[in-house]
Amino acid sequence: MESLLTYLILGALLFCIGMFGLLQHNSLIGMLIATELILNGAGLNAMAFNFFLSSDATTGQAFTLFIMGIAAAEAAIALSIMIAVFRRFHDIRVDSISQLKG
């Protein structure tokens, strides 16, 4: 609880669970949810470094807030793309949307 390493390993675990989900999930929404986990691992790392190693306590907090803002924008765009893809292909499984494949 008092060491930087605990938080860093927790962040790495979140990142790797997210990566596992991104690789194995069949639907686009599942992959997007896994991306949120990856971004959260990054935010946790920023906060941990801020608490233990930074001489200015606001830097890491500001960066974590920016990460959250970007995650929100990404969720809005990706969800609307998914709705458009679903209307066009009537399917959101990633294996069946292969029109761009040469």
Binding site: A12, F20, F52, D56
Partner: peptide
């Protein structure tokens, strides 16, 4: 997917254990 993520996790942990973080004299508490 499991192999890829486990390998990434092991690599990350190795890197974290090997790194030397310089401790600060006076961390900011504002």
């Amino acid at each position: 997917a499991l192999i890829a993520s486990v390998v990434t996790f092991i690599a990350l942990v190795q890197m974290l254990l090997g790194a030397q973080w310089a401790p600060l004299a006076a961390p900011g508490r504002d």
